[in-house]
Amino acid sequence: MRPGGAASDFGLRFRRNRNAVIGAAIVTLVLLTALIGPFFVPHDPNRVNMLAVWRPPDSTFWLGADALGRDVFSRIVVGARVSLTVAMSVLAITLAVGTTLGMIAAWYGGWVDALIMRTVDIIFAFPELILAILIAAILGPGLTTVIIALSLVWWPGIARLTRALVLSLKEEMFIDAAIASGTPVAKIMWRHFLPNIAAPLIVRASIGVGFIIMAEATLSFLGIGVQEPQPTWGAMIRDGLTQLRTDPHLALWASAALGITMIGFNLLGDGLRDILDPRLQER
């Protein structure tokens, strides 16, 4: 194969996949909004203005104002950053913990494997969001709590997937060769296992982002997630729902922001699954 063959093949299949392209466009827009949007918002998202309480959308407040007269547009933009901060933190933590524990379980087997996998089974015995609600209730609300709670419920899936992938790789010739030539275990995992299990893990992660954003929004909606004055889409929808009859702009625009973001990540995840690993089962 010529150099760069695999990469350009990926590019070609990506461009041909309509879901992946639309998803990537939406995700890029959301990422840009989260990264640079907060520097360009028209108002301070936390500035209280009693003269603008529940102001409908106009030329100063593009999407109106909320119960404290804060600009809804600015809060939606900054809310994107909060959402993605949670999603990326949880993803980083769970990928690190999940792949490490999954590889250790598959490599060493025996009681180490049993210990890790029984822990995974126990966490799977609870509906994931209810477990996250339980953890958030104990730790008390806040950004850190949300990240811890969602990490705790999300790593077992990664660990189980990693273990299954490594178990089948272990039988391969090149692993025997690596062992025979005295390669240290850590190096075998880093250099031989990881690159070979990356594709399904990327697919899993990209589908996971959608779930994590939804879970964060749900916790914040229920009031046990990220707290005021930090703007989050979930809390904005909750505040807006009580006012839906007279001032629908808050709930509807925040819902639209959350909905579009979720559609973007789901389309991208679906597309990546089709491109990278057509056989991977949905979960």
């Binding site: 959608g210 939804m214 929004a217 749900t218 909606f221 979930g234 929808i237 909750r238 807006g240 729902l241 839906l244 009859r245 629908p248 709930a251 509807l252 925040a254 819902s255 639209a256 959350l258 909905g259 979720m262 559609i263 990540f265 789901n266 389309l267 679906d270």
Partner: peptide, 22 residues
């Protein structure tokens, strides 16, 4: 289907309540 899977239930509730109830 993609829309149905993607939009969280409380965001969906905001739209449906607004249209059908209000």
């Amino acid at each position: 289907l993609v829309t149905g899977i993607s939009i969280p239930n409380f965001a969906m509730a905001a739209f449906l309540v607004y249209v059908f109830a209000i």
